[in-house]
């Protein structure tokens, strides 16, 4: 099977859907001729023409607002916000409009829309190229939120997101675009061509929204992670020797609660990790759900390992980022009951 980078897989997902469905349109800042600053849409304008893939003015509100109008017409827009950090001008359109259109019109109008955004840190991008705003979306009724951790999932999830009848926020961990980054920033970069999840089937296939994947089976603790942190968790498990069960959530909403609960009931311990800040982060929701569903099986308090509650810094990036050391320490503490 061909191996692809995550950028190539995402491009392939859009390509497949544009080929199958004439209603799929792709636009955003620098997305047309140039193919996007991360090159995710490279070649799509040449292949499908300027009415199906084009540059947008620098207005995130405009991009999402126009996409909602197109979706209301019957198209299936898949738009790019250049960095998740720049979605705030579009937030009103996402929250007040896209998310509620079906409900408020009782299905008279719907919004089959995908908003792709590179998310997360690890690229020396400081506070405006590193944020992880997933909780700002999962908190909104009417939105689905997806965070792939590898090329294989990214393509299959993106295809499902584009086929979905409702708006989907598709967060792409940018540090994973070219390789499975495990938080060891001082080590050579491993390319996706060396990773089995870099295998991306040709053509159309689905990875359903709402289904987690167990990346590593284990008996000692259940680790709930998504995006880049899946790879950090894998490294932490290998380095601590803790027999962790690592669950890649893949989609935060809908959430695969069944897989989570089954795992925590088995291990009796749970560590939740994300790059985003701690307070009111998605980890708080996960923690509440685990507590509500697994209280009697829990043998230790649930632990969260996250970014600190500060803006994302430039120079202190690796003190901010919850890397394998911090995550590994939490594994040990939770298992040893410290």
């Amino acid at each position: 099977m061909p191996r692809k980078t995550m950028v190539e897989a995402i491009r392939d997902g859009m390509d497949v859907m544009m080929g199958r469905d004439e209603n799929v349109v792709v636009f955003g800042e620098d997305v047309g001729y140039f193919g996007g600053v991360f090159r995710a849409t490279q070649g799509l304008q040449a292949k499908y023409g300027k009415s199906r893939c084009f540059d947008a003015p620098i207005s995130e509100l405009g991009i999402v607002g126009a996409a909602i109008g197109m979706a209301a017409y019957g198209l299936r827009p898949c738009v790019e916000v250049q960095f998740a950090d720049y979605m705030y001008p579009a937030y009103d359109q996402i929250v007040s409009e896209a998310a509620r259109l079906r409900y408020r019109s009782n299905g008279d109008f719907t919004c089959p829309l995908v908003v792709r955004m590179p998310t997360g840190g690890g690229i020396s991008g400081g506070q405006t190229h590193s944020q992880s705003p997933e909780a700002l979306f999962t908190h909104v009724s009417g939105l689905k939120t997806v965070v792939p951790s590898n090329p294989n999932d990214a393509k299959g999830l993106l295809i499902c997101a584009i086929e979905d009848p409702d708006p989907v926020i598709f967060l792409e961990p940018k540090r994973l675009y070219n390789g499975p980054f495990d938080g060891h920033h001082d080590r050579p970069i491993i390319p996706w061509s060396k990773h089995e999840l870099g295998e991306v089937p040709e053509g159309h296939y689905r990875v359903p929204l709402g289904k987690a994947a167990i990346r590593r089976e284990g008996a000692a603790i259940s680790v709930l992670a998504y995006g880049t942190m899946v790879h950090v968790a894998m490294a932490a498990a290998a380095e601590t020797g803790i027999d962790a069960e690592i669950i890649d959530l893949r989609s935060l909403l809908p959430l695969d609660l069944e897989t989570i609960v089954a795992s925590v009931r088995k291990t009796g311990r749970c560590v939740i990790i994300h790059e985003a800040t701690l307070t009111s982060g998605f980890g708080a929701e996960l923690s509440a759900l685990v507590q509500e569903n697994c209280f009697f099986e829990l043998e230790a308090p649930i632990r969260r390992v996250t970014g600190w509650d500060t803006p994302y810094p430039h120079a202190q990036e690796w003190d901010y980022f919850p890397g394998p050391q911090r995550v590994g320490r939490a594994f040990l503490e939770v298992v040893n009951g410290e």
Partner: peptide, 15 residues
């Protein structure tokens, strides 16, 4: 973003 950075390393270059 050095020890004398007036913005304490918080901001990207040129901001």
């Amino acid at each position: 973003s050095n020890e004398k950075d007036p913005l304490k390393g918080r901001q990207m270059p040129v901001l």
